[in-house]
Amino acid sequence: MADFRTSTQRERWIFQSHDLMERWAAANQRAAQTLAQYGTTRLNVDLLDGSVSYPESMPDHVEGSSVVKPLSYEEEQLTRVFYEQKIQEVCAAFKFPHKIQATAIIYFKRFYLQWSVMEHQPKHIMLTCVYASCKVEENHVSAEELGKGIQQDHQIILNNEMILLKTLDFDLIVYAPYRSIEGFIDDLEDFCRAGNGPFQRLKELRQAAISHVDKMMLTDAPLLYTPGQLALAALHKSNDLLRVVDFERYLEIIFSRQHSDCPIEQFVQSINEINYLVDQLNIPTVKDMRHVDRKLKHCWDPSSHDEHNKKKEKKSKHKSKRTSTDAQL
C-alpha cells in the first residue's frame, strides 16, 4: 500500500520526543505503583478479548513493604532494544523479508509505548509481534511452526494476539524505510546517468543503507520520523562512508523538484538528528541484560527474589546452574 501520506502511521504513530518520554515514564510509574500495591507487576490478560486486570495481591505481601525494586526508565529502554534486536534475529533465522521484520519491530515499539515491560513479558510479546506481522503481511506462518522454530509453546504466541491488536488500535499497515530506499536508489540511477557519479557502485550504497536501516530500526527514530526521512538519512550516512555520489547536490535536486514547504536546511537537520540517534545506539549483550532480567523476574514473581538470596549463600557448586538459566535468554 504505497501511500504513506494518507496512512494511519502518519496520522497517529509519528511523535515528538517529549511525547515518547511522557508515555514511557507513565508506563514505568504505573508498573511501579502496581508493584508497591500488589507485590507484582505482571498483569492478567483475558486471552479472548485482550482485556487486562490487576493481579491478585501476593499472599505474603504487605502494601509498601516490597523489597523488590521496579525497573528504572533506563533499564526498560535497554530491555526494549534488546528484544527488538531479538526480533531481527528471529526474522533472519526464518529468512523473513525485511518488511515483516520492520513491521514486527514497529508493533513492538507501539505496544511498549502504552505498556511497561514489567506488565507484559517482552519475550512473549516479541513472538506475538512476529506472528501478527507475518499474518498482516500475508506471508502466513502458523503459530505452531513459529513456536517449533524457536522452541516455544505456540499458545504463548496466540495468548497475546488480541491485546497486541487492541493496543495497536488495529492500525496494522506499517511503512518501513526499506521500500523507500529502493525508490531512492532507482532515482539515483537516473541521477548517475545524468553524469553525476558511478552507476555501478549504487549496489554497494544500497546494501550499506539497508544495513544502516537495520540499526536505525532499533532506535526511536521510526517513531519520530517518516520512512522517507529515515531512508535518506541511511543513504546519506552510507554515502559519507562510500563516497558514491555528491549527495548534497542530489538533495538539492530533490527539493527543487518537490517544491517542498520544508527548507532543505531543516531537512538536513532531521537527517543529522536521525543519524545521531543511530550513533548513540547501545545494543545490550546477554551479559548486560543479566542484572535487568533478574530484576524483571522478581517483579513478576517476587518469591523468586527470596530464592535468589538463598542461592547466593550456598556453595559455588550452584553457579553453573544459574549460568545455565541465564543462557536461556
Binding site: 500500500m1 494518507t6 479472548l48 478479548d49 500475508e138 503459530a143 496466540l158 494476539e161 488480541m162 496494522l172
Partner: peptide, 25 residues
C-alpha cells in the same frame, strides 16, 4: 467469533478487512 481452541488466533479474513479499511477513506 474468536475461539481460543483455534490454532491460528484472529480470523485472517477479518484482519485483512480491518487493515485495509483502516487505510482507505
Amino acid at each position: 467469533r474468536i475461539g481460543k481452541d483455534k490454532k491460528e488466533g484472529v480470523n485472517f479474513t477479518a484482519l485483512r478487512e480491518i487493515k485495509l479499511l483502516k487505510e482507505l477513506k
